[in-house]
Amino acid sequence: MLGGSRGIGATNAQLLAEDGADVAITSQRAAQKAEAVVKRTESRGLRAPLRVPWRA
């Protein structure tokens, strides 16, 4: 999920995970925020691996 570390992207990542999708959270500049999204997602028993830094 590009942009999944904050704002609308984080919300979308959470919603997709809740709907059964496996999401990978990526971040180039917001590693701590991305880690927080991963922890919130995994605390709900959902899968969300973290990929930092993301490179195109």
Rank of each mutant, 00 (worst) to 15 (best):
A24Q: 03
P49W: 10
Q28N: 11
V52S: 01
P53S: 05
A48I: 08
M1K: 05
R47V: 09
R51A: 03
R51V: 07
L2C: 07
Q28Y: 08
G7T: 11
L50S: 12
A13M: 03
K33V: 03
L2Y: 01
L16Y: 00
P49A: 08
G4H: 10
L50R: 07
A21Q: 06
A17L: 13
S27H: 04
R55D: 14
V52C: 11
T26W: 11
A30S: 15
G7H: 09
A24Y: 12
V52I: 13
E18G: 12
R29V: 06
R51K: 11
R6E: 08
A21C: 08
M1L: 13
V52F: 11
A56D: 07
D19F: 05
Q14L: 15
A48V: 05
Q32R: 01
G3H: 10
R6H: 12
A36I: 01
R40S: 12
R6S: 15
T26I: 15
R51G: 01
R40K: 11
V23Y: 09
A31D: 14
E35I: 06
L46D: 03
E18N: 02
R47L: 05
I8Q: 05
R40N: 07
V52H: 04
G3I: 00
I8H: 09
V37D: 08
L2S: 12
A48D: 04
L15A: 12
R29S: 15
A48H: 01
L2R: 15
W54E: 07
G3C: 11
N12H: 14
G45D: 04
A31E: 15
A56L: 04
R55S: 14
R40C: 09
R55W: 05
I25W: 07
A13S: 15
R47C: 04
G4M: 03
Q28H: 11
R29W: 10
A36W: 10
W54K: 02
R40Q: 10
P49F: 06
V37A: 05
E35D: 11
A21S: 09
G4Q: 00
S5D: 12
I25A: 13
A24G: 08
V38Y: 00
P53V: 06
G20E: 10
R29F: 12
V38I: 03
P49S: 10
R40A: 09
Q28P: 04
E35A: 14
V52M: 02
K39D: 11
I25T: 12
R29Y: 06
L2D: 13
G3V: 06
V38R: 08
L2T: 12
A34H: 00
N12A: 14
R6N: 12
R44L: 14
G9A: 04
L16T: 08
Q28G: 14
K33L: 05
L15M: 09
Q28T: 14
A10Y: 00
A34E: 03
A34T: 02
A36Y: 01
A56M: 06
R44K: 15
D22S: 14
P53M: 01
A34R: 00
I8A: 03
V23Q: 10
G45M: 10
E42V: 03
V52A: 02
T26S: 00
A30C: 06
N12F: 13
G3T: 08
R40G: 06
L2W: 03
S5G: 15
A30L: 10
Q14G: 00
R55H: 13
A31S: 13
T41Y: 04
R51C: 02
W54S: 03
R51D: 07
T41V: 11
Q14E: 07
A56F: 00
R6A: 15
L46G: 04
T11Q: 09
